[in-house]
Simulated scan of single mutants.
Amino acid sequence: MIGTVIQPLKGLEFIKGEEFVIGGPIEEGKNKVLVVEFWATWCPPCRTSIPHITEVAHKYKTKDVTIVGVTNEQDENTVKNFVEDMGDKMDYTVAIDLERSARNALFVPSKASGIPTAFILENNKVVWFGHPMDPAFEQTLDQSASRASARAGSEQGGEEDL
């Protein structure tokens, strides 16, 4: 699973945050970091990790890191009401995986056994997956974000030299 490159996923309905394509094209010379976190409204451990994911989203807000919580639940009203009730505790992008494309591209091949499970992708390539409260999650994300920032910084520096 580590090293798998994710192709563009369809069938996601974004109910909070800006819509984008998981596995979509990345501007040449950019380093894009994406966290895809699988969760559900009925999952007590997910409810515990949601504020943590929000903290992580705030920490990396100025970096080229995007965080999206993805649920397989099909009842849009249940998910929307849950997200609204969470308010600022769930302050990141949220999508419903209507066609199970994210589940089939990430969760199933990883043989993950439960939720919450987070995946860190760098330029659409899986570099880590596991529980979002695992210290390795933030360590890996920190490394990925640093690489993204270093690359962006070196490009900016190069442009200034022209």
Rank of each mutant, 00 (worst) to 15 (best):
G3F: 04
T4I: 09
V5I: 14
V5G: 08
V5F: 10
I6D: 01
I6S: 02
Q7F: 07
Q7G: 08
P8A: 12
L9V: 07
L9Q: 04
L9M: 12
K10T: 15
E13C: 08
F14V: 11
G17L: 10
E19V: 08
V21L: 12
I22E: 03
G24F: 09
G24C: 10
P25G: 14
P25K: 15
P25Y: 10
G29A: 13
K30Q: 15
K30M: 13
N31L: 12
K32R: 10
K32I: 04
V33E: 00
V33S: 06
V36S: 04
V36R: 03
F38R: 05
F38Y: 11
A40C: 09
T41D: 07
W42Q: 11
C43K: 08
P44I: 14
P45N: 08
C46S: 07
R47F: 05
R47P: 00
S49P: 01
H52W: 08
H52G: 04
I53L: 15
I53H: 00
I53E: 00
T54H: 07
V56L: 14
A57M: 09
A57N: 06
H58W: 08
T62G: 09
T62R: 14
D64Y: 03
D64F: 05
V65P: 01
V65T: 04
V65I: 11
T66V: 13
T66S: 14
T66P: 00
V68Q: 02
G69R: 02
V70A: 05
T71V: 12
E73N: 08
E76I: 11
N77H: 09
T78H: 02
T78I: 12
V79N: 00
N81R: 14
N81I: 06
N81D: 15
F82T: 02
F82Y: 14
E84M: 10
D85W: 05
D85I: 06
M86W: 01
G87W: 02
D88N: 13
D88V: 05
M90K: 01
D91A: 15
D91C: 10
Y92E: 07
T93I: 13
V94H: 01
V94F: 03
V94Q: 02
V94R: 00
A95F: 00
D97H: 09
L98P: 02
L98R: 11
L98W: 00
R100T: 03
S101T: 08
A102I: 02
A102C: 10
A102T: 02
R103T: 12
L106K: 03
L106R: 00
L106C: 05
F107N: 01
F107Y: 13
F107E: 03
P109F: 10
S110N: 07
S110T: 04
S110G: 05
K111V: 09
S113I: 11
T117L: 10
I120W: 01
I120R: 06
E122G: 02
N124W: 02
V127L: 14
F129L: 14
P132C: 13
M133E: 05
M133R: 07
P135D: 15
Q139L: 13
Q139F: 07
Q139M: 14
T140G: 07
L141F: 03
A145F: 03
A145H: 01
A145C: 11
A145K: 01
S146E: 15
S146L: 12
S149T: 08
A150W: 07
A150R: 12
A152F: 00
G153F: 05
G153Y: 02
E155C: 08
Q156H: 13
G157Y: 11
G157V: 08
G158D: 06
E160Q: 13
D161M: 12
L162N: 11
L162C: 10
